[in-house]
Simulated scan of single mutants.
Amino acid sequence: MSKTLADTCGLHVVAQTPFLDDGTLDLESIDTLSAFYYRHGAEGLTVLGVSGEAQKLTVDETIAVAARYVAAADGHRIIAGVSHPNLATLAEVTAQIMAEGADAVMICPPAGIRTDEDLLRYFEAVYARIGDVPTVLQDFPAASGVVMSVPAIDRLITAFPQIGVIKEEDFPSPIKVTRMRAELSRPVRILTGNNGQYLVQEMERGADGPMAGFSYPEMLSGVYDLMTEGKRAEAHDLFNRYLPLLKHEAQGQWGIALRKEMMRRRGALTSNALRGPGPKLTATDLAELDFLIGRMDLPEG
């Protein structure tokens, strides 16, 4: 049964797309990866995001990946990234993904938008094509080049009730969360990304949880649980325990390669491969990772 966005909270992991060593899709690993995420506290998944290597997939592969995650959802929410510079492709992928049973899509405005009017016109064109599809608005100027002010975001959520969640990744994200909580004219859920690096501060400012990836998702869900229980010091302690590895993984595509290697070691993936063009870990990279995690006393599995 499709879930609405009104009750979206807790950890929604930005899921990896598994590949085999030769770069072909590994759909079977989506099943083990999904189970891994849910076992470690994920309330839902965001698939086909930037760190999910969506930009490296064909349209058919995109649909296949989304469909496999939906099939493995076991009652959890599936949000699919559909951002694309070609609006016709965005609309086609949205229709097919929603037909497969996804609960919502995530859209980040494309490069080239310069003004609030440009932004409004873009989303008018989007919703003229996709209709009443539940939407996560991704505010990620480091990737898109599009800066959305809080007043601009307010105009969007006022004009388009389809937007039920904002994925906030602008810097400084805690301050922007504070402003949105104070200034938006209708309530929306706010989930935060940036690899979870500022999660405790964002939660303190009113975020509803993380929409981020990490090879130890139980840290992200654990911090969320502790913060919602009012256990601020314990949340900071848990976060700080994992911080060296969290920071190590927050290095773009190379960091995704490290994350995939960690999840391979934990039994969630068959291979640590990224589809090319993408980095491959060297013996030096792996030795550094071994040294780092060897000093952290992290759980296995």
Rank of each mutant, 00 (worst) to 15 (best):
I30E: 03
D7W: 01
C9R: 15
L25P: 00
L119P: 04
A182H: 12
Q138L: 13
K247V: 15
R77L: 11
A233S: 13
T4A: 11
Q201L: 12
R266I: 11
A104W: 01
E117D: 14
F214L: 12
Y69Q: 03
H236T: 13
G23Y: 08
I175E: 14
L220V: 06
V70C: 03
Y38D: 11
P172L: 09
T135K: 02
T94A: 02
R232C: 11
E124K: 12
R205W: 05
T94H: 00
L45Q: 07
L87E: 03
Y224P: 04
A257P: 02
A207E: 13
L258M: 13
I190F: 08
L199I: 13
Q16L: 11
A273P: 05
L274K: 02
W254E: 05
L289H: 06
Q16R: 09
E300V: 13
A250P: 11
L119G: 03
T270Q: 15
E168G: 03
V223R: 09
E28G: 08
Y198F: 15
E288T: 09
P277M: 00
T94R: 00
M148I: 15
K176H: 06
G164C: 06
T270A: 15
V188E: 05
Q55Y: 14
E100A: 15
D103S: 07
E234L: 05
S51V: 11
G222F: 00
I153R: 08
S34L: 05
L87N: 08
F19W: 08
V82S: 01
D290W: 08
D225V: 10
T46H: 14
A257H: 01
L33G: 08
V14R: 01
T46W: 12
L191P: 04
I79W: 00
V13E: 09
S83D: 01
E261S: 12
K176M: 10
A35Q: 15
G23P: 10
D237N: 09
A99D: 15
G75I: 05
I30R: 04
D290I: 08
M203Q: 02
T89N: 13
L238R: 06
L119W: 10
Y242D: 13
L48Y: 07
A66R: 00
R68M: 01
T270S: 14
I175A: 15
M263Q: 15
D103A: 05
G112V: 10
D74E: 15
S149E: 09
S185Y: 06
V147K: 13
R129Q: 14
G301A: 12
H76C: 09
S221Q: 12
T270G: 14
A128T: 09
M98F: 01
Y122K: 06
A142F: 01
G164Y: 07
S83Q: 06
L269M: 05
H76T: 11
V50M: 10
A250T: 10
S173Q: 12
Y122L: 08
D74S: 14
A111N: 12
S83P: 12
A212L: 07
N195M: 11
L45F: 04
F214S: 07
A250D: 11
I157V: 15
D21A: 14
P244H: 02
F214Q: 13
Y37N: 12
T178W: 08
L57R: 10
